[in-house]
């Protein structure tokens, strides 16, 4: 298993109850796997209009494989401007 630290901002940080959470996933797990685990651990994420996952400061595709040390961030609907 690989321990990942997942950061969160705004509405996602309120759901996490803090600015990050820890997630353990098998080696080879993808962004889609992370998304599913986050929804299991924090069902309130499902109340958001949508959320994306950023990996190393870029929007990640579901099939991307997570690497140890990745910067992973939950991105709730953005509202800048």
């Amino acid at each position: 298993m690989i321990q990942h630290r997942v950061l969160a901002f705004a509405a996602a940080a309120e759901i996490f109850g803090g600015s990050s959470c820890a997630v353990a996933l098998p080696a080879g797990a993808t962004v889609a796997d992370l998304r599913q685990r986050l929804l299991e651990d924090h069902p309130a994420l499902g109340e958001l209009v949508t959320f994306a996952i950023a990996r190393n400061e870029l929007y990640a595709l579901p099939e991307e494989v997570l690497e140890p040390g990745d910067e992973l961030v939950v991105i709730p609907p953005v509202s800048g401007g």
């Binding site: 901002f9 509405a11 953005v78 509202s79 800048g80 401007g81």
Partner: peptide, 8 residues
């Protein structure tokens, strides 16, 4: 900017 920049 309103669609994709991670600002809330």
């Amino acid at each position: 900017l309103k669609k994709s920049v991670p600002i809330w």
